[in-house]
Design a protein around this nucleic acid. Structure first.
Lengths: 191, 191
DNA sequence: AACCATAGTATCGAATCAAAACAACGTTGA
DNA sequence: TCAACGTTGTTTTGATTCGATACTATGGTT
């Protein structure tokens, strides 16, 4: 009984994912980009400074670092991103979107097929979609002990000091206001 | 405002799809199957006799028929499916799962990551997930004028004759009971 | 200083995928 | 009847993705 429900849910997710994939694939061809490259670009466009590295992208996309390294190399060549050295750890590389990269993201995300569908839907229903997807994702992350990739301010390492400044208890560093709304690969839900 | 919500929803869908993808990919390696092959197999395991063709698979997965033809050829070689000629139109080929194919599907769908997550969730919440995903998919299909791929009995071409037999008004043929719960590529929602 | 862990790169082979050309069959219409 | 056209499916080619493996460079630990 429960199993059948899981099967049904999986079927819906598979179908929706297929539609989104074909849509982005089609709209990417004209820009000379591949779907994976777009997903990486999208991730990089809204992750914080602890997460904008090749390893972060690999974790997020669920690919190996070798694969990701290649993809990022290509994206650098086309001028979508640029690599900056970390000034403390000389092994790590930070990835930043170029103006061109930001333009591409703005033009293609969210995909039109989804935008069209949601436009014709009352706001309450959009809220319930958001709510349900959040529950589902969280449940998957908890049940499978995966990285949660939540925004900084909802993390259990997030602290607000007495002087009002924000701080990450994991790294010990203070955070700018622009950082606390971005997603972080070290994110953990509070206990 | 609405746009931001779309972006958020897209992000959730992208993330969930990534998790499912990496999960199936990992569990497929041991069986020597690729993710796409599994999706095709899954589709073929529950579509009716109007839809179990290469063209049907191509529509469902959103791939070109050439690509699909290749994939299906491989799957026939490994003994997952077999091809049967249509007895009316000699161009069309029907695709059936072998016993081995059915076994693989039973073992791998739904993926464990999803099953685990849903197991620890009350039944009511599972229902609301199902409900929301159904709304979302339908909205996407309507807004983008795509094939709906619903089950036969919910189709506007579905008729019940006076003698109780089921009939498809599109093809004119009578349908067995096993057929009317399967998904059909000609499916259209009633007006 | 020795050792191990981590971040990232390079290379290789297998697989996906679209595009295009192609073959076979069915349908339409004069 | 036959010619034109559309449909179904296959084949081939080349670009791209992806994982596995081996590698370099740097940082941390004892």
């Amino acid at each position: 009984m429960v199993e059948m429900k899981t099967d049904e849910i999986y079927q819906y997710l598979e179908r929706i994912a297929n539609l989104l994939r074909t849509d982005t694939r089609r709209s990417m061809v004209e820009k000379g980009l591949q779907p994976v490259q777009l997903e990486a670009l999208h991730y990089l466009s809204h992750c914080n400074r602890y997460s904008d590295t090749p390893a972060g992208v690999a974790d997020y996309l669920g690919l190996t670092k070798g694969t990701v390294s290649q993809t990022l190399g290509l994206m650098e060549n086309i001028g979508m991103i640029e690599k900056l050295p970390d000034y403390k750890d000389r092994r790590v590389v930070h990835l930043q979107l170029t103006a061109r990269g930001r333009k591409v993201i703005a033009e293609t995300i969210p995909p039109k097929s989804l935008q069209l569908a949601l436009d014709q839907m009352p706001g309450v229903e959009q809220d319930s979609i958001l709510d349900v997807l959040d529950k589902l994702l969280r449940a998957m992350q908890v049940a499978n002990q995966l990285r949660t990739f939540g925004v900084c301010k909802t993390c259990r390492h997030h602290r607000i000091e007495m002087d009002g400044r924000h701080r990450c208890a994991l790294t010990g560093e203070f955070l700018e206001n622009v950082d606390i709304d971005k997603i972080c690969r070290e994110h953990e839900v509070p206990v």
